[in-house]
């Protein structure tokens, strides 16, 4: 297999070795889209890809926040959720590696200095953490912020994360279908990953 020599993707090791913020520091950002003249093969992504990459990065950051909140409320789920959370950090890093402009510019074109916040705050304050409204089954004890770590609340948290993952998968798929050939493979892989996450979370929820 693999007769098609189009694997332009960085190796896993390369992705892992480069935290998102470090990518910009490593000098991978050459023109940062400031110049209009674009020689053939220049790194500046087409607008459709830049928009898709930004949307995908936002989705990944939102998922990181969701996972952090769930892990904070349900320490017993940390082993499972921590592994999946790490994948999303990896997704964000892969997006930033592929589209370095993500790390340097906001949608307004203003340089933001820091990279995307891969390590989101561990406990987003307050109760506004429900990632998907309506996902919690009726009759469950209801997720009291920071307090309820009952099995029912855990199952509910897993179900909410699964819903968020499915939504993310759908968004990645839609973006992938309109992206150029440069970004589409990564988006397709992200879509597959979120689908697998959702499946695993549903399994864990029904088993617990």
């Amino acid at each position: 297999m693999g007769g098609v020599g189009v694997r332009g993707a960085p190796s896993r090791r390369a992705v892992l070795a480069l935290p998102a913020a470090g990518v910009a520091a490593a000098g991978l950002v050459t023109t940062a889209g400031c110049t209009e003249s674009r020689p053939a093969g220049a790194p500046a992504p087409p607008p459709v890809d830049l928009a898709a990459a930004r949307a995908a990065a936002r989705t990944e950051r939102d998922l990181l926040v969701d996972y952090d909140a769930a892990i904070a409320r349900h320490p017993a789920l940390a082993a499972l959720l921590g592994g999946l959370r790490a994948h999303h950090a990896q997704h964000l890093a892969a997006l930033t590696t592929q589209v370095p402009a993500l790390a340097t510019a906001t949608p307004d074109g203003v340089a933001s200095g820091g990279g995307p916040s891969v390590s989101a705050p561990a406990t987003p304050s307050g109760a506004a953490t429900a990632p998907a409204a309506g996902a919690s089954p009726p009759g469950s004890a209801g997720a009291q912020p920071g307090a309820d770590d009952s099995p029912a609340a855990r199952a509910s948290a897993l179900a909410e994360l699964a819903t968020a993952e499915r939504t993310a998968a759908d968004e990645h798929r839609a973006s992938c279908l309109t992206a150029t050939g440069g970004l589409a493979p990564l988006l397709a892989s992200l879509r597959a990953a979120e689908s697998c996450h959702a499946d695993l979370l549903s399994l864990a929820g029904s088993a617990g």
Binding site: V6, P185, A188
Partner: peptide, 20 residues
């Protein structure tokens, strides 16, 4: 994954879903 970036339209849909 190798094919996704090289096709468009219906073919891309097919391989994207095949990957997942």
């Amino acid at each position: 994954y190798d094919a996704v970036g090289l096709v468009t339209g219906r073919a891309r849909e097919l391989v994207v879903d095949a990957l997942a």
